[in-house]
């Protein structure tokens, strides 16, 4: 049931472009000098410095789970011999459970994703195991590469809503194919606030599937 409580919706279409726009706007307004940057610089020097500044300051992990996840993925990707960079992404403010998000970018991203995303899935599974130890707070983990999972999540959410509508229209229970826990969660979250249906997972292990169930509501 707790899987249904948060509305992640389609917030995974965030590919960072908005952040970039904000930072650029701030830089143009002349507001935020980087820490340690001399404020009394001449105009010419100041302009040069600004050009050298990274356009988007990298998000620095804020808690232990994020730090451990970043370190783990960074070490593994390096030892895989992949020409890639690994960074943490700011947890989505909309997601109440602050899913830990690690992103891999670079020339070998396709290898890190693997056929049908299998390598990425494995990396995510291992990261989850590595950072969630018994007796501690459990955090969901997303390991993405070049936006692969984000795009997949948002098409899965779109499909879920289409099927949600179909379930309401036809008054029928719709059952998905078996999916991974994370994919099931994406469906639950996409339909959490969807009028006229509830979702639940049925079956065990590799055969667990999401069902969309139409419910009668008093007309408002």
């Amino acid at each position: 049931m707790s899987e249904n409580e948060n509305d992640l919706d389609e917030s995974w279409d965030d590919d960072g472009d908005e952040d970039e726009a904000e930072d650029t706007a701030e830089a143009e307004a002349g507001g935020d000098a980087s820490p340690g940057e001399p404020t009394e610089a001449t105009d010419a020097d100041g302009a040069k410095r600004r050009e050298r500044r990274p356009r988007r300051p990298e998000y620095v992990p804020e808690d232990e789970h994020e730090r451990r996840a970043l370190e783990f993925v960074r070490d593994v990707v390096r030892e895989m011999g992949m020409d890639c960079r690994v960074k943490a992404r700011r947890p989505d403010a909309e997601s109440a459970d602050r899913e830990v998000v690690i992103e891999v970018v670079g020339n070998d991203a396709a290898r890190v994703i693997g056929k049908k995303g299998q390598v990425l899935q494995a990396l995510q599974f291992l990261t989850h195991r590595a950072i969630n130890r018994p007796g501690q707070e459990r955090r969901h983990v997303l390991v993405d590469a070049e936006g692969y999972r984000s795009r997949r999540d948002s098409s899965l959410a779109t499909m879920a809503k289409r099927l949600g509508k179909q379930s309401v229209d036809e008054g029928k229970i719709i059952t998905f194919e078996p999916m991974s826990p994370r994919d099931r969660r994406v469906v639950h979250l996409a339909l959490a606030k969807f009028e006229g249906v509830v979702t639940r997972s049925e079956g065990e292990g590799d055969d667990r599937r999401v069902q969309i169930i139409p419910v009668r509501r008093t007309p408002s």
Binding site: E79, M80, A122
Partner: peptide
Amino acid sequence: SIRTVLIAASQK
């Protein structure tokens, strides 16, 4: 999962 990651690395 360990094998999947390992095989990706060995292919590279």
